[in-house]
């Protein structure tokens, strides 16, 4: 059981988290935009998260917190 949470206000939609996720569960939202005008990163199938924290490690903006 693992969980990632996104501090969406900080997300810049760079997508670096998507490239490193071994489970391919991160995507850029097609509907949610933050106050800076970026479409934010999100996980739709959280049950598939293994809590490896690769996404958080790769994120240059400290958007992601990981619990395991």
């Amino acid at each position: 059981m693992a969980k990632v949470s996104f501090n969406k206000a900080f997300c810049k939609s760079c997508g670096l988290c998507i490239g490193v996720c071994p489970k391919h569960i991160i995507s850029i939202s097609e509907s949610e935009i933050n106050s800076k005008g970026y479409f934010v990163a999100e996980v739709l199938e959280m049950d598939k998260c293994i809590g490896c924290a690769f996404c958080a490690t790769m994120c240059p903006d400290c958007v992601i917190e990981v619990e395991k």
């Binding site: 900080f10 917190e65 395991k68």
Partner: peptide
């Protein structure tokens, strides 16, 4: 569940001005 990755204390809460992906 325990936190395995969080923001370091030595960083402020201010969002950086760096470009996406920098």
């Amino acid at each position: 569940m325990a936190i395995v990755f969080e923001k370091p204390k030595m960083l402020t809460d201010k969002p950086t001005h760096y470009c996406p992906g920098c």
